[in-house]
């Protein structure tokens, strides 16, 4: 395209910039959020396995406005260029659709996509029994159809469901939840608007039946008391989410 863009027109980006820095508008005096949830309530989740027929296993997840689809291929032959490995490889890739956000993104590997791919790999690595498929690769590919906040935890949850759907042996399902901090308040499973004005965030991925954390990422300021309260909230939410995932798997079998 020869033309340069004068202005990227979007009503939504205007709304986000107005909301930034004013947490008061996001939480009503009665302690409810813009979408009617209480502070420690997760968004309504919809999970479905077998979304992509061409894949060995797949899952679709919808948490509020966040919509993600994950396909799993393999175990299949590793790329020729890779050295011999007596344990299996897990290859993760996350990409965003161009219409995922309010401003049209450039298709292809952005910095965020690379970071998310790496984080997804690290969150799942500990759960998959890699030694059961030596010399081969399992590919986990995620596409974010709509980005509505908490994208990474939704991708992790959905990917672990897709791995189970593909029959890849895991120690346990991995469920993940994010938490946003506003001054003294903690908001579970934040939306995009809320994430844009948060002053700190916490993301927890864990295997609930084994009581093991596979990934924990913190940003912002987290005093000791607040951190332990946040972890407790996240663990509780992960437990409930894992329950939902198990129900979905039982239905699909």
């Amino acid at each position: 395209m020869a033309q340069s863009r004068v202005s990227s027109y979007s009503l939504e980006s205007q709304r986000v910039s107005l909301a930034r820095g004013s947490s008061a508008s996001l939480i009503s005096p009665h302690g409810t959020r813009e979408d009617g949830r209480t502070l420690h309530e997760c968004r309504a989740a919809f999970l479905q396995t077998g979304a992509v027929n061409a894949a060995a296993g797949s899952a679709y997840a919808e948490f509020g406005q966040t919509k993600v689809i994950v396909s799993v291929f393999g175990p299949r032959e590793s790329k020729k260029a890779q050295a011999y490995s007596d344990i299996g490889r897990l290859n993760c890739n996350v990409s965003f659709a161009t219409f995922a956000g309010s401003v049209r993104g450039r298709a292809g590997q952005g910095v965020e996509e690379k970071e998310y791919s790496q984080m997804l790999y690290k969150a799942l690595e500990g759960a998959v029994t890699l030694h059961t498929f030596p010399k081969t690769t399992v590919d986990v590919f995620a596409l974010v159809l709509q980005s509505g906040g908490g994208d990474l935890p939704v991708v992790i949850t959905c990917a672990s469901l897709a791995l189970a759907d593909a029959g890849i042996v895991m120690y346990d399902l991995v469920s993940a939840v994010s938490l946003s901090s506003f001054d003294t308040k903690l908001l579970l499973d934040a939306t995009l608007d809320e994430e844009n004005s948060q002053d700190g965030s916490l993301m927890l991925a864990c295997m609930t039946s084994r009581n093991e954390i596979t990934q924990l990422s913190l940003s912002g300021e987290w005093p000791q008391g607040k951190l332990s309260e946040g972890l407790k909230l996240c663990l509780d939410a992960c437990n409930k989410l894992a329950g939902l995932m198990r129900i979905q798997l039982r239905i699909s079998v």
Binding site: A2, S71, F73, T98
Partner: peptide, 28 residues
């Protein structure tokens, strides 16, 4: 949709750009 300055060669027309994407999720 995005706003752009009118194209120099056709000042009374907009543009449509078509892209087809096959992300890795769609096929082995």
């Amino acid at each position: 949709l995005e706003v752009m300055p009118s194209p120099v060669d056709s000042p009374d027309e907009g543009r449509i750009a078509v892209e087809f994407q096959m992300p890795a999720i769609c096929s082995p």
